[in-house]
Amino acid sequence: METLFFAIVSLVAIISAILVITCKNPINSALSLIMTFFCLATYYVMLDAPFMAAVQVMVYAGAIMVLIVFTIMLLNIRVNATQKHSHRILLGSIIGFFTLINTIVLLVKSQAAKPVGPFTGDMIRNIGHSELIGREMFTTFLLPFEITSILLLVAIVGSVILAKKNI
Protein backbone atom coordinates (compact mmCIF):
# COMPACT_ATOMS: atom_id res chain seq x y z
CA MET A 1 0.00 0.00 0.00
CA GLU A 2 2.71 2.42 1.03
CA THR A 3 4.85 1.42 -1.93
CA LEU A 4 1.96 1.97 -4.30
CA PHE A 5 1.30 5.40 -2.82
CA PHE A 6 5.00 6.23 -3.09
CA ALA A 7 5.02 5.17 -6.73
CA ILE A 8 2.01 7.34 -7.58
CA VAL A 9 3.43 10.39 -5.81
CA SER A 10 6.81 9.85 -7.47
CA LEU A 11 5.22 9.61 -10.89
CA VAL A 12 3.37 12.88 -10.37
CA ALA A 13 6.54 14.50 -9.00
CA ILE A 14 8.64 13.46 -11.96
CA ILE A 15 6.06 14.43 -14.56
CA SER A 16 5.48 17.85 -13.00
CA ALA A 17 9.24 18.37 -12.67
CA ILE A 18 9.69 17.63 -16.37
CA LEU A 19 6.83 20.02 -17.15
CA VAL A 20 8.65 22.77 -15.20
CA ILE A 21 11.50 22.78 -17.69
CA THR A 22 9.59 21.95 -20.87
CA CYS A 23 6.61 24.30 -20.62
CA LYS A 24 6.92 27.26 -22.99
CA ASN A 25 4.78 29.50 -20.84
CA PRO A 26 6.55 30.52 -17.62
CA ILE A 27 3.28 30.60 -15.66
CA ASN A 28 2.65 26.97 -16.53
CA SER A 29 6.17 26.15 -15.41
CA ALA A 30 5.58 27.88 -12.10
CA LEU A 31 2.33 26.01 -11.55
CA SER A 32 4.05 22.70 -12.28
CA LEU A 33 6.70 23.66 -9.76
CA ILE A 34 3.97 24.03 -7.12
CA MET A 35 2.85 20.51 -7.94
CA THR A 36 6.42 19.27 -7.45
CA PHE A 37 6.61 21.00 -4.08
CA PHE A 38 3.36 19.35 -2.99
CA CYS A 39 4.73 15.95 -3.93
CA LEU A 40 7.84 16.69 -1.89
CA ALA A 41 5.64 17.61 1.06
CA THR A 42 3.91 14.25 0.69
CA TYR A 43 7.28 12.54 0.90
CA TYR A 44 8.00 14.34 4.15
CA VAL A 45 4.70 13.12 5.59
CA MET A 46 5.58 9.56 4.57
CA LEU A 47 8.97 9.97 6.27
CA ASP A 48 7.38 10.87 9.64
CA ALA A 49 8.24 14.53 9.23
CA PRO A 50 4.92 16.42 9.36
CA PHE A 51 6.50 19.70 10.42
CA MET A 52 8.79 19.67 7.39
CA ALA A 53 5.77 18.96 5.21
CA ALA A 54 3.89 21.93 6.60
CA VAL A 55 6.88 24.20 6.19
CA GLN A 56 7.38 22.95 2.66
CA VAL A 57 3.81 23.81 1.71
CA MET A 58 3.76 27.15 3.51
CA VAL A 59 7.18 28.48 2.53
CA TYR A 60 7.80 26.96 -0.89
CA ALA A 61 4.39 26.22 -2.37
CA GLY A 62 3.01 29.32 -0.66
CA ALA A 63 5.34 32.24 -0.17
CA ILE A 64 8.12 31.59 -2.66
CA MET A 65 5.77 30.55 -5.45
CA VAL A 66 3.69 33.69 -5.02
CA LEU A 67 6.92 35.62 -5.36
CA ILE A 68 7.89 33.76 -8.51
CA VAL A 69 4.48 34.14 -10.12
CA PHE A 70 4.41 37.87 -9.28
CA THR A 71 7.88 38.33 -10.74
CA ILE A 72 6.86 36.59 -13.95
CA MET A 73 3.78 38.78 -14.23
CA LEU A 74 5.62 42.01 -13.44
CA LEU A 75 8.43 41.28 -15.86
CA ASN A 76 5.87 40.30 -18.51
CA ILE A 77 8.21 37.82 -20.13
CA ARG A 78 7.54 37.15 -23.78
CA VAL A 79 7.66 33.55 -24.81
CA ASN A 80 10.72 32.97 -26.92
CA ALA A 81 10.29 29.80 -28.88
CA THR A 82 13.67 29.88 -30.57
CA GLN A 83 15.64 26.88 -29.46
CA LYS A 84 19.05 25.94 -30.64
CA HIS A 85 20.24 22.38 -30.61
CA SER A 86 23.99 22.49 -30.48
CA HIS A 87 26.49 19.70 -30.14
CA ARG A 88 26.92 20.57 -26.49
CA ILE A 89 23.34 19.62 -25.72
CA LEU A 90 23.85 16.30 -27.51
CA LEU A 91 27.08 15.67 -25.63
CA GLY A 92 25.42 16.60 -22.36
CA SER A 93 22.48 14.29 -23.00
CA ILE A 94 24.78 11.37 -23.83
CA ILE A 95 26.81 11.89 -20.66
CA GLY A 96 23.65 12.35 -18.63
CA PHE A 97 22.09 9.21 -20.07
CA PHE A 98 25.08 7.04 -19.23
CA THR A 99 25.34 8.55 -15.76
CA LEU A 100 21.70 7.69 -15.22
CA ILE A 101 22.23 4.08 -16.34
CA ASN A 102 25.31 3.88 -14.12
CA THR A 103 23.40 5.20 -11.12
CA ILE A 104 20.52 2.80 -11.65
CA VAL A 105 22.89 -0.18 -11.94
CA LEU A 106 24.73 0.86 -8.78
CA LEU A 107 21.49 1.36 -6.87
CA VAL A 108 20.10 -2.01 -7.93
CA LYS A 109 23.33 -3.77 -7.02
CA SER A 110 23.66 -2.18 -3.59
CA GLN A 111 21.59 -3.22 -0.61
CA ALA A 112 19.23 -0.76 0.99
CA ALA A 113 21.11 0.87 3.84
CA LYS A 114 19.56 0.62 7.27
CA PRO A 115 18.54 3.90 8.87
CA VAL A 116 21.25 5.21 11.16
CA GLY A 117 21.45 8.02 13.70
CA PRO A 118 19.70 8.78 16.94
CA PHE A 119 16.30 9.70 15.52
CA THR A 120 13.85 6.91 14.83
CA GLY A 121 10.28 6.97 13.62
CA ASP A 122 8.99 5.95 17.06
CA MET A 123 10.92 8.73 18.74
CA ILE A 124 9.44 11.32 16.39
CA ARG A 125 5.92 9.98 16.99
CA ASN A 126 6.38 10.01 20.76
CA ILE A 127 8.07 13.36 21.27
CA GLY A 128 6.81 15.27 18.26
CA HIS A 129 8.56 16.38 15.16
CA SER A 130 8.56 20.13 15.70
CA GLU A 131 9.79 19.74 19.26
CA LEU A 132 12.72 17.61 18.14
CA ILE A 133 13.63 20.12 15.46
CA GLY A 134 13.39 22.98 17.93
CA ARG A 135 15.57 21.21 20.45
CA GLU A 136 18.23 20.34 17.92
CA MET A 137 18.22 23.84 16.51
CA PHE A 138 18.95 25.48 19.82
CA THR A 139 21.35 22.90 21.21
CA THR A 140 23.30 20.89 18.64
CA PHE A 141 22.95 23.38 15.83
CA LEU A 142 23.07 26.57 17.86
CA LEU A 143 26.04 28.01 15.98
CA PRO A 144 24.75 27.20 12.47
CA PHE A 145 21.43 28.74 13.52
CA GLU A 146 23.21 31.95 14.49
CA ILE A 147 25.23 32.00 11.27
CA THR A 148 22.02 32.11 9.24
CA SER A 149 21.38 35.58 10.67
CA ILE A 150 24.65 36.79 9.17
CA LEU A 151 23.71 35.11 5.90
CA LEU A 152 20.37 36.91 5.81
CA LEU A 153 22.03 40.25 6.58
CA VAL A 154 24.51 39.74 3.75
CA ALA A 155 21.68 38.83 1.38
CA ILE A 156 19.74 41.99 2.29
CA VAL A 157 22.77 44.26 1.90
CA GLY A 158 23.66 42.58 -1.36
CA SER A 159 20.23 42.89 -2.92
CA VAL A 160 20.04 46.57 -1.95
CA ILE A 161 23.42 47.29 -3.55
CA LEU A 162 22.64 45.45 -6.75
CA ALA A 163 19.04 46.54 -7.21
CA LYS A 164 18.54 50.01 -5.71
CA LYS A 165 18.37 52.83 -8.19
CA ASN A 166 20.54 55.37 -6.42
CA ILE A 167 23.07 54.35 -3.85
Binding site: L143, P144, I147, L151, V154, V157, G158
Partner: peptide, 23 residues
Protein backbone atom coordinates in the same frame (compact mmCIF):
# COMPACT_ATOMS: atom_id res chain seq x y z
CA UNK B 1 33.79 20.80 12.23
CA UNK B 2 30.14 20.31 11.42
CA UNK B 3 28.86 19.98 7.87
CA UNK B 4 26.20 22.58 8.68
CA UNK B 5 28.76 25.11 9.88
CA UNK B 6 30.90 24.53 6.82
CA UNK B 7 27.90 24.84 4.52
CA UNK B 8 26.61 28.04 6.09
CA UNK B 9 30.11 29.51 6.12
CA UNK B 10 30.36 28.71 2.43
CA UNK B 11 27.02 30.37 1.79
CA UNK B 12 27.94 33.54 3.68
CA UNK B 13 31.14 33.66 1.65
CA UNK B 14 29.45 32.93 -1.68
CA UNK B 15 26.54 35.35 -1.30
CA UNK B 16 28.96 38.16 -0.46
CA UNK B 17 31.13 37.21 -3.41
CA UNK B 18 28.22 37.21 -5.85
CA UNK B 19 27.57 40.82 -4.87
CA UNK B 20 31.24 41.75 -4.96
CA UNK B 21 31.61 40.28 -8.45
CA UNK B 22 28.76 42.44 -9.70
CA UNK B 23 29.72 45.43 -7.60
Amino acid sequence: TDLMTIFLGLEVMSVSLYVLAGF
